[in-house]
Simulated assay, not measured.
Amino acid sequence: MTRTYQSLTRNALILAIAASFALSACGIKGELKTPPPVWGEEKPTPPDAEPAQS
């Protein structure tokens, strides 16, 4: 019974490590851009705000 528990624990650990590497490769690198509003008007930018870079 102990051998089965050790095998199960080892397999779960290997799966967790592999999943963390796989998920760390997914995602957006760099700054996130704010999407435009879905409804309503876009808010005006204050005059002292820096312009957004595209």
Score class of each variant (00 low, 15 high):
residue 38 V to H: 12
residue 37 P to T: 11
residue 50 E to R: 12
residue 14 I to M: 01
residue 33 K to A: 14
residue 45 T to S: 05
residue 2 T to Q: 09
residue 32 L to I: 11
residue 35 P to N: 14
residue 46 P to G: 00
residue 24 S to N: 09
residue 42 E to T: 07
residue 22 A to L: 14
residue 27 G to W: 09
residue 28 I to D: 02
residue 44 P to T: 04
residue 26 C to I: 15
residue 3 R to A: 08
residue 6 Q to Y: 10
residue 37 P to N: 12
residue 30 G to F: 06
residue 29 K to G: 07
residue 19 A to L: 15
residue 50 E to H: 12
residue 2 T to W: 14
residue 45 T to G: 02
residue 31 E to S: 14
residue 24 S to A: 08
residue 29 K to T: 08
residue 33 K to P: 05
residue 38 V to Q: 13
residue 26 C to N: 06
residue 19 A to K: 09
residue 48 D to T: 12
residue 17 I to C: 06
residue 2 T to C: 09
residue 5 Y to P: 03
residue 25 A to L: 15
residue 45 T to N: 05
residue 13 L to N: 14
residue 2 T to R: 12
residue 47 P to Q: 01
residue 17 I to Y: 05
residue 12 A to M: 01
residue 48 D to N: 09
residue 10 R to C: 01
residue 36 P to V: 10
residue 4 T to S: 12
residue 13 L to C: 12
residue 52 A to P: 04
residue 8 L to A: 03
residue 36 P to G: 13
residue 51 P to T: 00
residue 40 G to S: 02
residue 37 P to C: 11
residue 25 A to Q: 15
residue 8 L to Q: 08
residue 26 C to M: 13
residue 40 G to D: 01
residue 20 S to Q: 09
residue 41 E to H: 07
residue 18 A to S: 15
residue 48 D to H: 03
residue 7 S to R: 15
residue 22 A to N: 01
residue 12 A to G: 05
residue 32 L to W: 01
residue 51 P to Q: 02
residue 52 A to I: 12
residue 36 P to F: 02
residue 11 N to K: 00
residue 6 Q to C: 02
residue 49 A to C: 10
residue 18 A to N: 07
residue 22 A to S: 07
residue 7 S to K: 11
residue 35 P to G: 14
residue 6 Q to F: 04
residue 30 G to M: 07
residue 35 P to Y: 06
residue 31 E to Y: 05
residue 26 C to W: 14
residue 17 I to P: 03
residue 48 D to V: 09
residue 28 I to Q: 07
residue 8 L to D: 01
residue 31 E to P: 13
residue 8 L to E: 04
residue 8 L to Y: 04
residue 43 K to Y: 04
residue 30 G to R: 14
residue 44 P to N: 10
residue 54 S to H: 06
residue 1 M to C: 05
residue 44 P to E: 08
residue 24 S to Q: 04
residue 29 K to V: 13
residue 15 L to D: 04
residue 34 T to K: 12
residue 45 T to K: 01
residue 3 R to Y: 06
residue 39 W to N: 14
residue 16 A to L: 14
residue 9 T to L: 06
residue 7 S to M: 08
residue 13 L to M: 07
residue 32 L to E: 01
residue 44 P to I: 02
residue 21 F to W: 12
residue 42 E to R: 13
residue 34 T to Y: 06
residue 53 Q to T: 10
residue 8 L to H: 04
residue 30 G to D: 06
residue 32 L to Y: 00
residue 53 Q to H: 03
residue 23 L to M: 14
residue 3 R to V: 10
residue 52 A to T: 13
residue 34 T to M: 11
residue 24 S to D: 03
residue 3 R to Q: 10
residue 48 D to L: 02
residue 50 E to N: 09
residue 18 A to D: 11
residue 51 P to E: 00
residue 39 W to I: 13
residue 40 G to M: 02
residue 21 F to T: 00
residue 9 T to H: 05
residue 35 P to R: 08
residue 27 G to S: 09
residue 42 E to G: 02
residue 28 I to T: 13
residue 26 C to R: 13
residue 44 P to D: 07
residue 48 D to F: 00
residue 16 A to C: 10
residue 19 A to D: 10
residue 15 L to E: 05
residue 46 P to V: 04
residue 52 A to Y: 00
residue 43 K to D: 00
